[in-house]
Design a protein around this nucleic acid. Structure first.
Lengths: 228, 228
DNA sequence: TGCGCTATTTTTGTATACAACTTTGTGGAC
DNA sequence: GTCCACAAAGTTGTATACAAAAATAGCGCA
């Protein structure tokens, strides 16, 4: 599938996607400087497209742009982490409610496939892929709810959550215990909106409490930030 | 204030802001093509900064970017309009609740000033400014709630709402009857979170029902769209 | 006259060149 | 030896030049 079929997306989209994956997988550390020339060299593109990609990632809050200073991998603070999950708590439970009421058998099938792949990835120890699929589950749910505007917000929040989880992860088992997703899909299969809403609410709470948000991130943006 | 004091923001931010205002004030019609050379000439900047501005506006959903085709002023569909207000209904009532509980006397003062200016603008017939201030009221409320992540979403939704209202506006009086904001500020002054939440919920419902979302937008994207 | 193909023009996508700013390194004064 | 000023290097911000794609116009043909 990655041979020569797709060539439609623009260069900046490709670079942004690749950088986003690298950030999610924690290969790019929070706070790391993203030099435009360097990135351009790596992907074989000019600074023009690198800048477009960085601007896009900046809007997704995966990188922070500082005027005349450059782009840095975002380093969500504890406050920001809480805010992201509070925003999700506002959006996702009622979206799950709608999704449960609207879900078709095909939708359930798609979600079930996501869960199965997630399980497989976890068993193989590929936590990065499991995390990605776990996020896709949430995004797919918003799509089922037929709320593309909310879905866009959720997609952004899920993306930021991945970075947050990578930063503040406390215990591996809490990654997004597929039990929660299993229960959710069952509620959706029987179109039990209220149950889905409650399950999602508690799922997000569990996710939040599984993070260690007591102290500041360990990696500082700069030495000054760390030593003052 | 517009003489020579501020010169800090980048060119693209300035262009984006100016275009956004023009779109909100309906001076740029939905569907209108935004030629990069033309825009650049108007603002005396190169296409480079115009493209950056357009990309930013695209992320705010105020313009639509079509690959190899260019940028067009967004033309929200009826479905999109409903979705925007449904998203606001998810976010704003509970944000108003938090804001009411946290609001300081200074916060109330700021909001009151917004309302006063809004009243003044309405009496002067400057509906564009009134609409802008009305939106600022909602954004300020999210700021008071100390939820900058949610505030960013609300800011984007308010911005899109302005365009939607400009498109689907039915009756002038419904613009954002300041009565609703007056009642909200009173609830906040007495830190009545529950009341603020309910008021916001109904305010948004009123806003939505004041729009004429029965049929498609009247302005076509191009002459061809209109005549074929 | 109407249709379809090709050539031209226009516009966007990308690369490169230059200017402005920030940071860093060096040297001198105290 | 420390601090400040200034110069040098490096990076970002912007403008321009070129390539690729789309829109348009002109022509030939039925």
């Amino acid at each position: 599938m990655s041979g020569l079929a797709e060539q439609k997306e623009s260069g900046s989209a490709r670079v942004a996607e690749s950088l986003a994956v690298a950030i999610h997988e924690h290969r790019l550390s929070p706070g790391m400087k993203l030099n435009e020339d360097e990135v351009g060299e790596i992907y074989g593109v000019s600074r023009t497209v690198v800048r477009a990609a960085l601007q896009q990632l900046s809007h997704d809050r995966l990188v922070e742009l500082k005027r005349n200073r450059g782009a840095f991998v975002a380093q969500p603070t504890v406050k920001e982490a809480r805010e992201v999950f509070e925003a999700r708590a506002l959006l996702e439970p009622r979206t799950a409610h709608s999704a449960a009421e609207r879900a078709t058998p095909e939708d359930i099938e798609i979600l079930q496939r996501h869960i199965d792949e997630e399980h497989a990835a976890l068993e193989q120890g590929d936590t990065g892929r499991a995390l990605h699929l776990s996020g896709m589950f949430h995004i797919e749910m918003a799509r089922i709810a037929d709320q593309s505007t909310v879905a866009d917000f959720i997609a952004q929040l899920v993306s930021r959550s991945s970075l947050i989880i990578a930063l503040y992860w406390q215990r591996r088992a809490a990654l997004c215990e597929s039990h929660a997703h299993d229960a959710l899909i069952k509620a959706m299969a029987r179109h039990d909106g209220k149950a889905a809403e409650e399950l999602m609410k508690h799922h997000l709470l569990d996710l939040l409490t599984s993070l260690d948000l007591r102290d500041q991130p360990s990696v500082a943006k700069s030495l000054k930030d760390a030593l003052t």
